[in-house]
């Protein structure tokens, strides 16, 4: 294998496998993962809990060794050059991992010192974030709200100006408003030239990424830009709405021309087997042809894999 020298590739993962021993059984966590992530992109790893996102993140951040495969991050071999790598990456684990008995400022100073830098040195990078939590800088991290904890955790992960930022499920359990704000912050970080790899179980966040990989049960279902990805969904899809939604769902489930139907917010999404064929619909049902979204595709791919 040739060492990567092309600087525009931030992460290259080739044929990575990882399994854990649960009880006496060997349970695969990741199966034949291949990924190439361009430098400077905001890359989303999208999949439900337990799909292998965290395992992959830990392997990429040198916290875990894969069973097999090759990983280059920022031009460094993750397995052999982990010491160099650890100076360059920023990692925010899924679980809040700062010191709850230290204040905001103390946490920041501590993490800065870990990387041999200081809060002041890279202040410009975290400034926008920091001003939001600054009024509470003497408050202990354990007493902060979820949204603020998350901002602090991001500040700590950025304090040494990493070239690649790994964010493992930063928006899980966070309300819609804070989630939106968080994604805005990520967009501005991207402008600073930092490659960002973010994982999320929220399918609707896919459209906010430059590129996404869908992951389910340790396998990558697809990698593409969000716009390109949904084009792979070829079945005709409709949004339908009626007076009695539950009844509508139960009835159409039985219809042989229907590939599948499932609730989607105020509508049901109706996926048909063939074009230009519609099921018999009760009166007063509104139906519109729609563009599929990532969640539709994910459901589609999940069922195809099974």
């Amino acid at each position: 294998m040739v060492k990567l020298n092309s600087s525009d590739i931030a992460i290259k993962v080739t044929a990575v496998n990882k399994s854990y021993i649960v009880g006496k059984k060997k349970t695969p966590a990741l199966e034949n993962i291949n990924l190439t992530i361009q430098a400077g992109t905001l890359f989303g790893l999208i999949g439900p809990d337990g799909s292998g996102k965290t395992s992959l993140f830990r392997i990429l951040t040198s916290l875990l060794l894969p069973d097999s495969g090759e990983i280059w991050v920022d031009g460094l071999n993750v397995i052999t050059e982990y010491k160099k790598l650890r100076k360059r990456i920023g990692y925010m684990p899924g679980k809040f991992s700062l010191y709850t008995d230290l204040t905001i400022k103390e946490n920041l100073d501590f993490f800065a010192s870990l990387f041999g830098t200081s809060f002041e040195e890279n202040y410009d990078l975290i400034k926008d974030l920091y001003v939001q939590i600054e009024p509470f800088k003497d408050r202990r991290a354990g007493q902060l709200s979820g949204g603020m904890k998350q901002k602090l955790a991001l500040c700590c992960a950025l304090i040494h100006r990493p070239t690649i930022l790994f964010l493992d499920e930063p928006t899980t359990g966070v309300d819609a408003v804070s989630r939106k704000e968080f994604w805005e912050i990520l967009q501005s970080l991207k402008k600073e030239g930092i490659t960002i790899l973010v994982s999320t179980p929220y399918m609707d966040e896919a459209t906010l990424c430059d590129q996404v990989a869908l992951i389910q049960e340790g396998k990558i279902l697809d990698v593409d830009t969000p716009a390109q990805m949904v084009n792979k969904f070829t079945n005709p899809i409709y949004a339908i709405k009626g007076a009695n939604m539950l009844q509508l769902l139960r009835e159409l489930e039985k219809d042989p021309s229907v590939e599948r139907i499932y609730p989607f917010g105020e509508h049901h999404h109706l996926v048909m087997k063939e074009k230009d064929v519609l099921p018999v619909l009760p009166l007063s049902v509104t139906i519109n042809k729609i563009k599929p979204n990532i969640e539709d595709l994910f459901i589609h791919l999940m069922q195809h894999h099974e």
């Binding site: 916290l63 650890r86 100076k87 990456i89 990692y91 991992s97 993490f111």
Partner: peptide, 13 residues
């Protein structure tokens, strides 16, 4: 237990 070790390990300390 609290997960801090994950960050410490990914740092150069």
């Amino acid at each position: 237990e609290l997960g801090n070790m994950e960050i410490l390990l990914t740092s150069p300390i």
